[in-house]
Design a protein around this nucleic acid. Sequence first.
RNA 1: UGCCCGAUGGUGUAAUGGUAGCACAAACGACUCUGACUCGUUUUGUCUAGGUUCGAGUCCUAGUCGGGCAGCCA
Length: 600
Amino acid sequence: MSVEHPESAPPAPSDFIRDIVAQHVAEKRYAKIVTRFPPEPNGYLHMGHAKSICLNFGIARENGGQCNLRMDDTNPAKEEVEYVDSIIADVRWLIFGWADDCLGFKPKGAAPVRNESNGKLDFYLAPVPLDSGNTEPFFASDNFDALYAYAVVLIQKGHAYVCDLSPKETEEYRGSPDKPGRDSPHRTRSATENLDLFQRMRAGEFPDGARSLRAKIDMASPNIWLRDPLLYRIRHTTHHHTGNKWCIYPLYDYAHCLSDYLEGITHSVCTLEFEVHRPLYDWILGALDLPRALPHQYEFAKLNLSYTIFSKRRLLQLVQDKIVSSWDDPRMPTLSGARRRGIPASAIRRLATAVGVTKYDGLTDVAVYEHAVREELNALALRRLAVLRPVKLVLTNIPPDETIACEAVDNPQAENPVKRKVALTREVFIESDDFAEVPPPKYFRLKPGGEVRLKYACIIQCDEVVKDATGAITELRCTADLTTRSGGPNADKKVKGTIHWVSATESIDAEVRLYDRLFTVAEPGAEEDFKKFINPHSLEVIVAKLEPSLKGAQPSDRFQFERLGYFVPDAKDSTPGKLVFNRTITLKDAWLAKGPAPKK
RNA sequence: UGCCCGAUGGUGUAAUGGUAGCACAAACGACUCUGACUCGUUUUGUCUAGGUUCGAGUCCUAGUCGGGCAGCCA
């Protein structure tokens, strides 16, 4: 069964940004809606990014538009190709079968093409269809030549100047939120001198931090970002994508708005913290007097999930301190972690729809995510029998060499359920939780003298509890009522409980990793010392008994171990010779929630 | 004591001047060869104070609370 169910994507949502886009579509303001997802390749993508991906690609697909994947790589000190590769893989996984058609890539190695339009300098980089062969994502660093040319225009127009202030002096001159800044002594340099200095900055004549290129706006602006913000800084550093071609690098505010323009972005959607940068975004584009339609920035609140952290710094700490095994540890909130955990991409898209898009910075209950995961998996997963904590049970009226074939269903939710055979034998394993010598009130499962149904098999009665010298239960001796088998004369006999089981002689062993929430509190990121909230039981490794049909299970398969939860073969560690399953998530458990709950 | 943004049940969101709705969560019940799924019922909400209006969650004013902004990070 396929893991991806594109058709299971919920209907197109509506929100304030989509409303704006719809308005623009109605006005025919743009020939085509173009959005972009612009991660910095300095870490792995996580669920927070997923919300942005779903929004940007969602807008594109709902309007017959396109969404460019762009590496926002203007800071060579922090960025690496390893991250570029993981980002591409994660984005393609998340949108697979849903928005692939909208993914904007460019020819490998392509940079914006220069042309003059009505005497105005222009650059444009057209996207190409994904299937056109040699393609790659957009890179802000591919725009460096165009960005440089535009910086020259800014200088010529008197909108930018080279400043010799040191980083510390620049900070002092900037003032503070409630105190205006002071003009830099270099603010009044002539265009000729600025051009010469900027050219020499590029040529490598000055050391890091010696000079910078600044926009000439207003040092007294109440908006800090309008107080002559830096456009270029000197960094004699090798860049992962451009090598040693440059020693000056543009800053975010300068590179981002222009990269949007160069790619023909119409709607530049970002998170709330960039709201105060929007005037600068508009100022730069406005100062350049550009010939084509300008992009506009819209901001929304990023995703916050309870019991989860998204800070790249803290996620890195978890990896470095070996609290988790890697960036793709199934407990990590990264997309690669979720993938390895067995979370379908469709479940993440469902979450994105469920949380909506607003400007309110709230905290979403992780239960919303878990519900989305169960919703998708319930439809997708193949039901299988597996016993996590086995107790031996002997059916004393079945001869040792007899095998009774029982019919089991792969997925009762499917339109035409597929069936398979499971073998009932004299000795089986049941879950230790499913027997209680002294049952709590309302206990539906097996107890001394009690009856219960073995799922897909028959009703059994517990006759005897056998214990060892320490008092531990070694086996349960029961009688099987074969007349209650499916198709049997008493098949319709009702008992309160039905439990899962596997044949003791025909089952196979597998390592099972039982994952749980990584943190014990709803807001682990609220305090600096977030590691004290780590859940010590976030991973338990056991050896379980599985029905033999699971032998060939692949990481692309999705299973529900009946009455237990959803499980997936681990993509890294599971082999045909040694199966390893990850628990994606437990089934909802109303009994567990009630109280006198045995450990699951 | 600067500027920007926000505030609707426990949580997230809808209502675009006209019956406060949905989802999750919680509780109870029905169904059940998964204590799952499904179905039904229930609890809980417009930050405060003024104003405009026949009518305000929605518009205006002031306040309260929360978030963001002073990287040569993004």
